[in-house]
Amino acid sequence: MNMRITHIKPYPQLNGYVSKIWVFESSGRIPAEDMRLIVPNGMVKLTIPFRNGVSGKNETMYHLSKESRLTLIGIGDIPAIIDVEQDKPSGTIGIEFSAAGAYRFFQLKQSEVKNRIFLLDEVLDHTARQVQEMIANHGSVAKKLHVIQQYLIGRLQRSSADHLIDYCVGLIKNTRGQITVRQLEQKTGYSSRWLNDRFQHKVGLSPKNLCSIIRFQQFYEPWARSGRHFNDNLYHYFYDQAHFIKEFKRFTGLSPLKYTKSENEFGRIFYKD
């Protein structure tokens, strides 16, 4: 069984809001020995299966998206298992939104979709169904990508920025998750409770939780790209080794040792160029 991923450069109008666009294709069902594990990366996702259906499950729910159904995957802080519906060739378009970008497209309380999966037309207005039909009617993947990006640009233009959220998320990213909530309080003049409420609404996670995911990704992403053994010099993102192991198990469901002995080529492919 062959898998490949093609990274697509977002239209310029989406820069800063859309972090990644990719097209995943496989020749059949992902092998049973592959964990098919997706770890949290601090991004809301929109997926469009254009060949075969796709299922996703975590510790709280299971969802099957049929072919051509636009699917919104809320920001997560627990791992998920992905699979295709049938053992035949599959293809899926994926769009991943920055932590400070999703609220511009989806005017929802982001904490209400956290760790959950919805059909887009269940949570948005009638335009979601209209664009879904347009995408289904185009046979070309390039045309599907054009339609969905134009739709997102339209939604972006009708929304307004929350400059405080943008500023705070920028600080978290620039410090690689090593800024404290106390420091955010000092830099913004707002209390931790107020910041937490704002983050829950616009991001879906607390500032502390988002920091934890960003720190974990500093360790996980380079490893996923290279496939080499974990590098001890990345422990400086954590208080100590025990803290690292605790966070690793939280976001993967496994200890580092058990994880490195398992196969997860599917999960790693999304980090490769």
Rank of each mutant, 00 (worst) to 15 (best):
G74K: 00
G74V: 01
D77K: 02
P79H: 00
P79T: 01
I81Q: 02
I81C: 03
I82C: 00
V84F: 00
E85T: 07
Q86I: 06
D87A: 07
K88Q: 13
K88L: 10
P89H: 00
P89R: 00
S90M: 07
G91T: 02
G94Y: 01
G94H: 01
G94S: 07
E96R: 09
S98V: 11
A100F: 07
G101C: 04
A102F: 05
R104E: 13
K109W: 08
Q110L: 12
Q110V: 06
Q110F: 08
S111K: 13
E112R: 09
V113L: 04
K114D: 06
K114I: 11
N115R: 02
R116M: 12
I117M: 06
L119H: 14
D121R: 10
D121M: 06
V123Y: 04
L124M: 14
L124G: 09
T127I: 11
E133H: 11
N137V: 09
H138C: 15
H138Y: 13
H138R: 14
G139S: 10
G139I: 05
V141T: 12
K143N: 12
K143Y: 12
K143F: 09
L145R: 04
H146F: 14
H146R: 14
V147G: 05
I148T: 03
I148N: 02
Q149V: 05
Q149E: 10
Q150C: 06
Q150E: 14
Q150F: 04
L152V: 07
G154F: 08
G154W: 09
R155L: 15
L156A: 04
L156K: 01
Q157H: 15
Q157V: 12
S159D: 07
H163S: 13
L164T: 13
D166C: 08
Y167R: 10
C168H: 02
C168K: 01
V169T: 06
V169E: 03
G170S: 08
I172V: 10
V181C: 03
R182H: 15
Q183K: 14
Q183I: 07
E185D: 13
Q186F: 12
Q186Y: 12
Q186C: 12
T188M: 06
G189V: 03
Y190F: 14
S191D: 08
S192Y: 06
S192G: 07
W194V: 11
N196Q: 11
R198F: 05
R198H: 10
Q200I: 04
H201F: 10
V203E: 08
G204K: 01
L205V: 06
L205Q: 02
L205E: 08
L205R: 00
S206K: 04
P207L: 04
K208N: 15
K208L: 12
N209S: 15
C211Q: 04
C211P: 04
S212V: 04
S212P: 03
I214W: 06
R215L: 07
F216H: 01
